[in-house]
Amino acid sequence: MKISKKIYTLIVLIALLYVFKGYVYRVFVKYESIQERKEYSVHNSELISYIENSTINSDLSGIISIIDKSNKLTNEKLKFTSSKCDVDPNKLVNSSKTHCVGYAYFYASTCNYLLKRSKLPVEWKAKAYASKLYFLGVDIHKYFDSPFFKNHDFVIVENSNTGERIYIDPTISDYLGIDSVSIRSN
């Protein structure tokens, strides 16, 4: 069976887009933080147990390994919903259904818990932020009437001494497998 040149080209293009989806997403979609969200600390014994049991044999000696493990724990525990739901990570450990706000809170709380437990310098901190999303420089939120789409939450993991920042969207990570995002430069 012969595959036509056009179909072959389309298959190769789709494969390349899949392989480079993170890069493509970061080029076309930019985040602009508009409000820092409140911070939740981990105090629920079930959440602590979930984190501890899930990290028993994990090497969490560097910031990237903590970021990756926080992403994995968030993705394993949460499922997206557009319905009204909890956003407190201490409740989400049981309810599991949330939207981007809950994803960001859960991720930031888990990451901060692991940062405290690790031997990394104390200057690293994860914070949840409400943001605007821009596709090719255009604010996409203005095209939606629903209050649900007025903004989108993500997380900034920052080193307060060096100013290094890592941008994570746990919702996008869960559904598209994209581990980091980029911000809009002014």
Results as ranks from 00 to 15, higher is better:
residue 120 L to W: 15
residue 137 G to A: 02
residue 75 N to I: 12
residue 156 I to S: 03
residue 67 I to T: 07
residue 10 L to S: 13
residue 60 L to I: 08
residue 144 F to R: 11
residue 4 S to R: 07
residue 114 L to G: 01
residue 161 N to I: 07
residue 147 P to L: 10
residue 168 I to H: 11
residue 186 N to V: 01
residue 136 L to S: 13
residue 37 R to F: 06
residue 3 I to N: 04
residue 73 L to E: 10
residue 122 V to R: 12
residue 61 S to Q: 13
residue 59 D to R: 13
residue 40 Y to F: 15
residue 146 S to M: 05
residue 78 L to P: 00
residue 142 K to G: 08
residue 162 T to H: 10
residue 124 W to R: 09
residue 70 S to A: 09
residue 127 K to P: 00
residue 62 G to P: 02
residue 24 V to R: 10
residue 89 P to M: 05
residue 49 S to V: 07
residue 142 K to L: 10
residue 129 Y to Q: 05
residue 46 E to V: 04
residue 40 Y to T: 05
residue 67 I to W: 09
residue 11 I to C: 07
residue 58 S to C: 12
residue 160 S to A: 12
residue 159 N to C: 13
residue 49 S to K: 15
residue 143 Y to I: 09
residue 78 L to N: 00
residue 117 R to V: 05
residue 26 R to D: 00
residue 56 I to Y: 13
residue 174 D to P: 02
residue 60 L to P: 02
residue 174 D to Q: 10
residue 68 D to W: 08
residue 73 L to S: 04
residue 113 Y to E: 04
residue 152 H to F: 10
residue 125 K to Y: 14
residue 13 L to Q: 11
residue 56 I to Q: 14
residue 84 K to A: 08
residue 19 V to K: 15
residue 41 S to I: 15
residue 139 D to E: 09
residue 122 V to K: 13
residue 79 K to L: 07
residue 9 T to D: 09
residue 110 T to E: 06
residue 54 S to P: 04
residue 115 L to R: 02
residue 34 I to T: 09
residue 103 Y to P: 01
residue 32 E to G: 03
